[in-house]
C-alpha cells in the first residue's frame, strides 16, 4: 500500500472540496478539516484545454 493511501486510512481525513458547497458545510460541522475551492470551470470552460492543462501539470 502506498504512503498516500496509508496516510488517508490512518486519518484524520483532510479534505479539499471542489464543487458542491454542501459537502464542505457537512464536513465542517463534523469538525473535519476542509478547504473549499472557489471553483469555476478551468480554461474558461473549455474541457479540452482543461484536460491539456492537467496533463501539463497545472
Amino acid at each position: 500500500m502506498s504512503d498516500a493511501i496509508k496516510d488517508l486510512l490512518a486519518g484524520p481525513v483532510k479534505v479539499v472540496n471542489i464543487g458542491l458547497e454542501g459537502f464542505e458545510a457537512e464536513l465542517s460541522a463534523q469538525d473535519v478539516e476542509v478547504v473549499q475551492v472557489d471553483w469555476s470551470p478551468p480554461a474558461g470552460g473549455d474541457p479540452k484545454l482543461a484536460d491539456l492543462l492537467s496533463k501539463l501539470g497545472a
Binding site: 469555476s40 470551470p41 478551468p42 480554461a43 474558461g44 484545454l49 492543462l53 497545472a58
Partner: peptide, 8 residues
C-alpha cells in the same frame, strides 16, 4: 501560464 489559464 499554466496556472493563469487553469484558474482563469
Amino acid at each position: 501560464i499554466r496556472l493563469v489559464v487553469d484558474t482563469g
